[in-house]
Design a protein around this nucleic acid. Structure first.
Length: 226
DNA sequence: ACATGATCATAA
DNA sequence: TTATGATCATGT
């Protein structure tokens, strides 16, 4: 077991040391089996990187490195360095949202500082051969913070008004709300339009690929279109 | 081609 | 049941 990093620099150095290795090599270093595909182990890459970096595995609703105030996220990228998938951030609160603000929200805490680790994600590359890229420690700049806050407020308004059923993934420019459950039959508590308790599909906040693409471009000086 | 809605594994 | 880790796979 890798001990948890005590400082930000220790975490960063460890993260940088992973760049260039394949997932198969990293898995072998930790005695882990590399799956042929991710259909039945969608979180495998993320879990592997947690192991490599000494994150305390678990399902606590906290940042991965709480003492450092840093959240770890793997991000699958194309050969051009663009994100191939949206990024799940956290489950959306559907009850007890009175008085909740962006500043005090769970999602903002998670996104306050993120260590992004790009990983080759093209499906034609066998999982074991996919390589880890250079990590990026990110904090939202003013513009990004404002964009996320605006989207969050738009989405939360549906929840507060009991209009969860009117939300679709099409809302929100950079942050979207989508199902987050084992399957579409799962139900959780929420509010109806008249304030009455209802049961609905659990939702999660996701960062659109357009947003994460901008982050990567800003950091790695990749060309942006438009 | 790509985003949306659906889904998979696991721990507490 | 809720949280964590996400990607799959179909419809548009």
């Amino acid at each position: 077991m890798i001990p948890s990093p005590k400082t930000e620099n220790e975490l960063l150095e460890r993260a940088y040391s992973l760049a260039g290795y394949s997932l198969g090599e990293l898995a072998a270093q930790h005695g882990l089996h590399c799956p042929a595909d991710l259909r039945r182990e969608k979180g495998w890459v993320g879990m592997l990187l947690e192991t490599c970096l000494g994150a305390t595995a678990g399902s606590k609703p906290e940042q991965d490195f709480q003492e450092l105030g840093i959240e770890l996220k793997s991000i699958p990228i194309s050969h051009l360095g663009k994100p191939l998938e949206t990024t799940f951030v956290c489950v959306a609160p559907l009850t007890g949202v009175q008085g909740l603000t962006w500043e005090t929200s769970h999602i903002r805490n998670k996104l306050s500082k993120v260590l992004w680790i790009p990983v080759e994600g093209e499906r034609e590359i066998p999982v074991c051969e996919r390589r880890v890229g250079m990590p990026m420690l990110w904090q939202a700049n003013e513009e990004e913070e404002a964009q996320l806050k605006a989207d969050w407020e738009e989405l939360m308004e549906f929840i507060v008004l009991g209009k969860v059923h009117e939300i679709s993934a099409k809302h929100g420019e950079y942050l979207q709300l989508r199902p987050k459950a084992a399957n579409s039959k799962v139900k959780t508590e929420a509010y109806g339009a008249k304030g009455q308790p209802i049961k609905t599909l659990p939702r999660g906040f996701y960062l659109r690929t357009q947003f994460t693409a901008k982050l990567l471009a800003r950091h790695f000086m990749l060309p942006e279109e438009g």
